[in-house]
Design a protein around this nucleic acid. Structure first.
Lengths: 223, 223
DNA sequence: TCCAAAGTATGAGATATCTCCTATTATTGT
DNA sequence: ACAATAATAGGAGATATCTCATACTTTGGA
């Protein structure tokens, strides 16, 4: 992780201003953090020291079960908060957050801001709005997720996790996340290769026909 | 809908006190509303006049698409809020909420309380906690929903929607919600009857072996 | 360095689920 | 009261997906 300072910091503060989300001047407290692909923004089980707001890039949320199995739970994209559960909830078990590409976040230190933001109705209202929308969307997604064949859900997954045109998730994690057997995942992946959407390069896949994948993924988004 | 007054009202206020969720005395504002099965707590597209907090019973959330098709989106259970989106978000499209059984809600009038509760950090923090937990749970559910055969998901669904031991949802809505074909839904339902879990009575089904259904539904909840 | 564990890869048969088709009831508007 | 529409019901074959078995490769630690 690299903390961006001075002019560059100011550049991001201006480009993605979030001052309207707070009733007090927040800018002076904000740190701008830059991560490489696959870096951990938060380690599982460790309390974060910041409330994060993602402005560029994407990340994945992981949790480890008692039996040691690691599961991918969800994604984080631009304009998402990270660490809001820990901000509010003292006994929340922290999940791991790992970037999927180069990523830039605003990081608001708990040390100097926790009390302030927990008493800021403007912030709390915005956060509540954000969360209730998120819950609604997840509910809708949930109710229809199993309606589509793996082909569509996998296309969507590939687009969400690929960095540039390279897809390189672990099959085991993916079939767990998508709720599909290992065997079948491989089968559909090899179909994608046959059809020329992907090209296998050793252990990773390169996207050859983005448009085709986008069309398959679009199907999930109708209505 | 029936508004419960006097002693009975006080009984519910005491039994399910929510005063700790607010920093000001909320009790005097709370109305206690009682609904029969299948009543609408909120009509789709109409702004509610209350923030509801469900204390007994359960309900379903529906939305109508442009093409006229009606979809079940999610459930509401005890200790859930209803109308929080409308409280926060002026241009939120209101979804329909229909009870699944006899239901009792606290109803907090926007007219007298909206400003107060929108400026109450205690309330906002609690609501945020509630919503972020809900979003997390939905995300986890989503990622694994398609992992299980209809048998398990249907058992869960039946338990969530049955009133006492009577299940009587419309097949069309159910297969939409569960993302499964009409044909297959019927097939699994008739299997449940063969196995003696359910008994078909004209247009509805009566639960015969609750425990078996619970076991099937439990599978969804592991880990 | 070597072993155990995790991950990758593929075949073959078994199930779950879908699509298409065709009847038979409810429900609804006129 | 009647036609039109929506919902229920079930048969049959096609696909998607799962389970099991088996072999090879990479990886992390003793």
């Amino acid at each position: 992780m690299e903390s961006i300072k001075k002019d560059k910091r100011q550049y991001f503060l201006d480009k993605y201003s979030i001052s309207h989300l707070f009733s007090f001047p927040i800018e002076e407290y904000i740190e701008v953090h830059k991560y490489k692909r696959d870096e951990w923004i938060i380690r599982e089980g460790m309390r974060p020291n910041f409330l994060f707001y993602m402005i560029e890039g994407k990340a994945k949320i992981y949790v480890t079960h008692k039996n040691g199995k690691v599961s991918l739970i969800n994604f984080i994209n631009e304009k998402d908060y990270i660490g809001e559960m820990e901000l509010l909830n003292d006994d929340y078990y922290t999940k791991g957050i790992q970037t999927t590409s180069k990523t830039i976040c605003f990081a608001i230190p708990f040390s100097s801001c926790r009390t302030k933001i927990l008493n800021d109705v403007t912030f709390l209202r915005e956060l509540t709005k954000f969360l209730s929308l998120k819950a609604t969307i997840m509910a809708a997604k949930y109710s229809q997720s199993s309606a589509f064949p793996l082909e569509n859900r996998l296309a969507d997954f590939i687009l969400q996790t690929a960095d540039e045109d390279v897809y390189m998730e672990k099959h085991m994690i993916v079939c767990d996340f998508l709720g599909v057997s290992y065997r079948h995942l491989l089968h559909v992946l090899s179909q994608f290769c046959c059809k020329g959407y992907l090209k296998k390069e050793g252990r990773q896949y390169r996207i050859q026909q983005l448009q085709q994948l986008v069309e398959l993924a679009e199907v999930l988004k109708n209505e």
